[in-house]
């Protein structure tokens, strides 16, 4: 079992929530296709994310998606509380989580504007289904475990 503990920071879980930094870039199949044709794609970029059990799918802001060099593969409907229902892009991406957690080599993530300006990505239940997340409110400890 791999275990990642976010830095102990008393009080931060109340104010910030379960926030973690991830790196997002083009997916593994896109990298392989680029290699086959002699092209290069952007390296993964740091993205500020929050673990969100209220999100059925992982979400990224359109601005972060562009910064990470992602391209759309589909369109879908999203209902954002406070924003209503919109139709937005779905991007293919690779998400690199903090070591020792694994990398998602290819995931379809939904684009939507988020209302906390520092948060660019919500880690949704599509990813969370592979993790055991411990949220220790009194101590401020957040730990993520996944099977190897």
């Amino acid at each position: 079992m791999r275990r990642y503990e976010l830095p102990l920071h008393r009080g931060s879980l109340l104010d910030i929530g379960p926030e973690l930094a991830v790196n997002v870039g083009p997916s593994r199949p896109e990298l392989e296709a680029a290699n086959r044709s002699g092209k290069t794609l952007p390296d993964p970029q740091r993205v500020n994310a929050v673990i969100d059990t209220g999100a059925r799918r992982t979400v990224i802001t359109p601005q972060a998606a562009q910064r990470c060099g992602l391209l759309a593969v589909s369109r879908t409907k999203v209902f954002v509380v406070g924003g209503g229902e919109v139709t937005g892009d779905v991007f293919s991406a690779r998400i690199v989580f903090p070591s020792p957690l694994g990398t998602w080599p290819a995931i379809d993530i939904v684009a939507a504007n988020l209302f906390a300006s520092r948060i660019e990505c919500l880690i949704g239940r599509d990813v969370l289904r592979r993790w055991i997340v411990t949220y220790d409110g009194p101590s401020g400890l957040l730990a993520i475990e996944e099977h190897e």
């Binding site: 083009p26 296709a33 209220g54 593969v73 409907k77 999203v78 939904v110 919500l122």
Partner: peptide, 23 residues
């Protein structure tokens, strides 16, 4: 990607009714 350039084709999951993902 083995046939087309990235960003030029649709990849969509099939459901009988289009889901609306709540955030």
């Amino acid at each position: 990607l083995r046939k087309f350039e990235r960003g030029t084709f649709l990849v969509k999951q099939i459901f009988e009714k289009e889901p609306v993902y709540a955030i």
